[in-house]
């Protein structure tokens, strides 16, 4: 079967995937390269005091992932209301019987 993927579908996939991977992987690398704490949680001492905080706010990272998910949701709702054009139908030409 031919693909009937449209520009808006590609844009939605790129945007949502980009946002999710930015939040999880890209900023994760940034956090790693910045030094301790290497994860999204602050470092505490034995007394429970915070001695180092993440360079990238975890709220920003989770927010980006949720935004990516939201793009998927909006895309899904859009596709529910505007189904993609069927390639076979779009390219079909009407033939008269002999």
């Amino acid at each position: 079967m031919k693909s009937n993927i449209e520009t808006i579908d590609k844009a939605a996939m790129a945007l949502s995937g980009g946002l999710m991977l930015l939040g999880i992987v890209v900023l994760g690398f940034v956090e790693l390269l910045d030094g301790a704490p290497y994860g999204a949680a602050p470092v505490t001492n034995d007394a429970g005091e915070v001695v180092a905080t993440p360079m990238v706010d975890p709220a920003l990272r989770t927010g980006l992932v949720l935004l990516g998910m939201a793009v998927l949701l909006v895309w899904g709702l859009y596709r529910y209301t505007v189904p993609p054009m069927d390639v076979d139908e779009a390219t079909a030409t009407e033939m008269t019987a002999d």
Binding site: M1, N4, G17, P83, P84, D86
Partner: peptide
């Protein structure tokens, strides 16, 4: 043919763009 909004790239065939995209993610 009945229009099926889940046909094309939205069905769960492994060679469809949406499935490939999600598996990669």
């Amino acid at each position: 043919k009945t229009a099926n909004p889940l046909a094309g790239e939205f069905e769960l065939n492994l060679d469809r763009p949406l499935t490939a995209y999600w598996l990669a993610i």
